[in-house]
Design a protein around this nucleic acid. Structure first.
Lengths: 118, 118
DNA sequence: CGGTATCCTCTACGATACTG
DNA sequence: CAGTATCGTAGAGGATACCG
């Protein structure tokens, strides 16, 4: 599925692409359905997590992917990035309230998946 | 995102690939998150719909895509295909109870998307 | 009508190496 | 540690034409 963020004309900052699909479920899926996205958000719901720790938690996703998804989530205001210290640099990510609201919306999906052993 | 169905060794019938991700939300998204999938299912929840009608309803998706998603949904037992008549051939698709249960699980996502004007 | 077949493009995703 | 750069590939997805 297509990425949601693009660089602006000069390649400077990242911009969120609006989704124009008429069906709201479809739009919702596009917003949250990217590979690893829900999983990443899930791991950030309870405590702030450092980048490499997160990457390790999501076994299977490369750092590049984790990074990319995190940037999307940040642009979507679902995740907040905090720099704890430079040199040695330390960064943590955590789900915002909005991000948590997204997760709560996915909770039924979680139950459903488990219930049917999928 | 990768397709969920593959041909068997001899290219005969289609087989459902199991998803091995540990996170149930992630798995759920993989099951339902493919492009157009939720949207298609949505249109089949109330009445049976014929193939071409469906393709027209999902403006933007090619027949090929609609066909592909329908086959996945069928393999997942979320949609039932019924041949009404040959020559002229007529086929309808409708959501099974299981398919409807999947939709009900996505209902909160729908509300959430609308509430936040996404 | 309900699909297939073909061709093509694009980009998501992965592996690896590297940097401040 | 927290990323970025680079490169390579598979396959998702689209356009169009065709078929029984």
């Amino acid at each position: 599925m297509k990425s949601l963020i693009k660089s602006d004309t000069k390649g400077r900052k990242k911009v969120l692409e609006p989704c124009l699909e008429p069906c709201p479920i479809e739009r919702g899926m596009r917003l949250l359905g990217a590979k690893w996205k829900a999983s990443i958000l899930w791991h950030l719901k309870d405590q702030p997590v450092r980048f490499n720790d997160l990457a390790r938690m999501i076994g299977g996703a490369s750092k590049k992917m984790v990074d990319q998804r995190l940037k999307e989530l940040e642009a979507q205001k679902m995740v907040k990035r905090t720099v704890l210290s430079e040199r040695p640099i330390a960064v943590v990510y955590q789900a915002t309230d909005f991000g948590k609201s997204a997760l709560s919306v996915l909770e039924p999906l979680l139950k459903w998946t488990e219930k049917h052993h999928l």
